[in-house]
Structure formats: C-alpha cells, structure tokens
C-alpha cells in the first residue's frame, strides 16, 4: 500500500527555504530539517506498510519523523528515491494530482491546526467541501464523525472554548470525515496528558479496526507499551529498527517500481498480535 524505496531528503538553502524561514520567523527550523551544509533530513529510507496496519514512527526529536510524514502526505518531494501510495508514484505526480491523492489521507497534527474563526462543525466539514461532497452528505458525515469522537454536542462551539483533548478529537474527526485510507498523525498526543493521550490512541484504534491504515509519529514511548503495532525507528534520518528484512514487501510494492539495490525494510511487528479492537 505504502512503499518508500531508497528515499532521501536533503534540504538546501534554496530561495524557497529561505523565504519559508522568514515567514515562520517565530518558529525556528527544526534540527535536521534544514541543513544548509547538505545534511540529509532522511537518508536512504526503504520500507513498505500494509493496508490496515497500525504503525508507529519513533525516534528522537529531529530524527526525521515529521519529514517522513510530509513526504508520505505529498507535502514535500524526496530529493531522491521513490514513494508509492496505492500504485501512485507520489514522487512523480504534479501538485494538482497530489491534492487529489491527499483526499485519501487524513492528517492529524500535534497542534491540531484547527481554524479558530469557524465552528467545530465547519472545521470538520472542510475536507468534504474540498472534495466536492453534496450538502446532505456533508451534514451526515460531519455529524457522524463528531459522534464518533464524542463531540456531537459541541458541533456549534468554537474551537477556542474546547479543551486540548477535545480540540485534538476535532482534528481527528476532520481527518477521518473523508473516509481516508490512511490516517497520518504527527505527535497527536504531544500536548496532552497521559489520560487524554490514551483516549486519543483508542480513537485511532477504532479507525484502524475499520480498516484504516494508521501511521503515528511520536516520541512518546508510553504509547507503545501496551498496544500491538508495527514500529519504525528513525535515528539521525536513517531507519534504525529491528534489522534488515530483505525483499519482504508482501506484494505491496507496485510492479512498476524500480528495483532497489538497497536493503528493504518492513515495519517491524511488535508482539505480532492482531490489531487491538475496542
């Protein structure tokens, strides 16, 4: 379903990168993200993920977790290598096609990225409006998504009156409302206490049980202790987990993908047990 083939990402001090740094002057660029000296944020990453799997990407801060997610979401292009999502070569697609592909992905952010000038309902409805859904369908799906995350009664509230955990649940409702095949989450529990973190994780398990592939980037190791999952460990931009498992892509890698001479990794199953179903 998802295949990274020898993917590297190197940020250069290009004019775009410089202007980005100026625009986000308040937010310092992350370590490993911009390396004017040419230090790669990701280096020769190869792995494949199966549909319906539950995956964690872990690693220290600056290890390349967020970069990997952005590459997967098509928000960035790899410097080298190939990325496939359901037979679509993301590294080759034009931006206009990528936006269409992105409709099949739900993205949850650490800071939830809600729009504070509109209601919870309108925030959750946004992906459906983008993907040209009809009004009735939008109403039905948003209502259902809000029920699923336990916020049906807060549909008309503005995000700023919600707690951190509720805001994150709104973010999750927005991510799943378009029935994505993949749910990407970048430090979704980073700003939450342990109780709320596990509530959020339980939601991800719900969606995974319905067949959605879940990929969570986190450095919160407590999330990994009690659940069955696959795990990718990044260290200094390199895959550093389990050990090489050659040529075990289980047919998920598209036939048209170029055969890589590098070692193939698959997400390493932890405990090997079936995914948790609430």
């Amino acid at each position: 379903m998802i295949c990274f083939d020898n993917v590297s990402k190197i940020y250069s001090a290009s004019p775009g990168a410089v202007s980005g740094a100026i625009v986000s002057a308040k937010k310092p660029l992350r370590r490993g993200k911009v390396a004017s000296s040419g230090k790669p944020a990701l280096s020769n990453i190869s792995f494949s993920l199966q549909q319906g799997s539950f995956n964690f990407i872990t690693g220290h801060s600056g290890a390349g977790k967020s970069t990997l997610l952005r590459l997967l979401a098509g928000l960035e292009r790899p410097s080298s290598g190939e990325i496939y999502f359901e037979n679509n070569a993301l590294h080759l697609l034009k931006d206009s096609r990528l936006t269409g592909i992105r409709e099949n992905m739900g993205i949850v952010f650490q800071d939830n990225q809600l729009l504070y000038d509109r209601s919870v309902f309108d925030n959750v409805a946004l992906p459906l409006i983008i993907s040209r859904r009809r009004k009735r369908e939008i109403i039905d799906r948003v209502t259902a998504a809000l029920k699923r995350v336990g916020l049906a009664d807060r549909a008309d509230a503005m995000p700023e009156v919600l707690s951190g955990g509720e805001q994150q649940r709104v973010g999750i409702a927005r991510a799943v409302v378009n029935r994505p095949r993949v749910l990407l989450a970048d430090e979704p529990t980073g700003n939450l206490d342990p109780g709320m973190s596990h509530d959020i994780l339980r939601l991800f398990r719900h969606f995974n049980a319905a067949g959605v592939t879940v990929i969570i980037a986190t450095h919160d190791l407590t999330l990994l202790e009690t659940r069955h999952h696959n795990r990718l460990v990044l260290k200094n931009g390199q895959l550093h987990s389990g050990g090489p498992v050659p040529d075990q892509t289980n047919g998920q890698r598209p036939a048209n993908a170029a055969a890589s001479t590098t070692t193939q990794w698959v997400a390493e199953p932890v405990n090997g047990a079936p995914d948790y179903v609430d």
Partner: peptide, 15 residues
Amino acid sequence: EQTSGRLLLPRAASR
C-alpha cells in the same frame, strides 16, 4: 463497517 478498506461512518439525522 469495513468495506474496501474504507471507514463507513453511520448516517445521522439532518442538520
């Protein structure tokens, strides 16, 4: 429900 790997959210009352 699980169909073709997609999450099917239940229909809800109109808004």
